[in-house]
């Protein structure tokens, strides 16, 4: 089963994302900030990371940078969830090693379509 790590500090977004992904047959691991996500990612088995950018403790950009230092996550697709207004965040995320981005607001179908693309 494809395992997706969903990272967001907003519980409602996390729920929405998890519910959508689980409904589509993915296994979801939730994390509430970058540090939490990093710790969970280290346990391995994650096929795709979906991360918010603005988060307490460790933000999404730092998470991506840190993940890319792990051998297991060298090529793992990482999608960042950004808002349209944060254009500079996109390039920052890219520099950190993000695979792509999804703009908030998104609806469940948009989310699934993008994930399907990345997972091939």
């Amino acid at each position: 089963m494809t395992k997706i790590l969903a990272v967001d500090d907003s519980a409602s977004m996390r729920q929405m994302v998890s519910f959508t992904l689980q409904g589509a047959g993915y296994e979801v691991v939730e994390a509430c900030d970058g540090q939490d996500a990093f710790d969970k990612a280290k346990r391995g088995g994650v096929d795709l990371v979906l991360s918010d950018v603005n988060m307490p403790v460790m933000d999404g950009i730092a998470l991506i940078k840190n993940l890319r230092t792990l051998p297991d996550y060298k090529f793992t697709p990482i999608l960042m969830l950004t808002t349209e207004s944060a254009a500079d965040k996109k390039s920052e995320g890219k520099a950190a090693g993000a695979t792509g981005w999804i703009v908030k607001p998104f609806n469940p179908d948009q989310l699934l379509n993008t994930i399907k693309k990345v997972l091939g």
Binding site: S10, N54, P105
Partner: peptide, 16 residues
């Protein structure tokens, strides 16, 4: 922390 809170509300409210 103020920014994050505003940002989160914006993100979720537009999503919902």
């Amino acid at each position: 922390s103020i920014f994050r809170a505003a940002h989160s509300i914006k993100g979720s409210s537009s999503t919902f």
